[in-house]
């Protein structure tokens, strides 16, 4: 149990850091931003889920991830709008907008992916 959690932690840490580093490297910033929505957590999690629970289980997770990705789009758009239009600071804009992600993700799941 603890070994599995530690393994998840290490794999997730490495993958998320690697994609964030890629985002640091590129210019212009709009291109670098693409890496902010890289499937880093998904890649780390799905590999382990497939090994442990099987492909059908992981495919169900991927189905819900579609709703999560739409929610991420709304979230990132909201952060961008708050920062560019209203000059809200990065930490506040990105943390407060998590509510947008949560409402959209669970709303979409309730309406569509739950079936």
């Amino acid at each position: 149990m603890w070994q599995e959690l530690l393994f998840r932690f290490l794999v997730g840490g490495v993958l998320v850091s690697a994609f964030a580093l890629l985002g640091d490297l590129f210019k212009p910033k709009s291109f670098a931003g693409l890496f902010g929505a890289a499937p880093s957590v998904a890649l780390a999690t799905l590999g382990l889920t497939i090994a442990r629970e099987g492909r059908a289980y992981a495919a169900t997770e991927a189905r819900s991830m579609i709703a999560g990705a739409v929610a991420f789009f709304l979230y990132a758009s909201c952060v961008s709008w708050l920062m560019m239009r209203h000059k809200v600071n990065g930490l506040l804009a990105s943390c407060a907008s998590i509510i947008v992600w949560a409402v959209a993700a669970f709303g979409l799941w309730f309406l569509w992916a739950r079936a």
């Binding site: 985002g23 212009p28 910033k29 709009s30 291109f31 670098a32 931003g33 693409l34 890496f35 902010g36 929505a37 890289a38 990705a69 739409v70 991420f72 789009f73 990132a76 758009s77 952060v79 961008s80 709008w81 708050l82 920062m83 560019m84 804009a93 990105s94």
Partner: peptide, 11 residues
């Protein structure tokens, strides 16, 4: 904000 707009496109 531009970086966040890039992430929105990346979605």
């Amino acid at each position: 904000g531009v970086d966040a707009a890039g992430a929105a496109m990346g979605c």
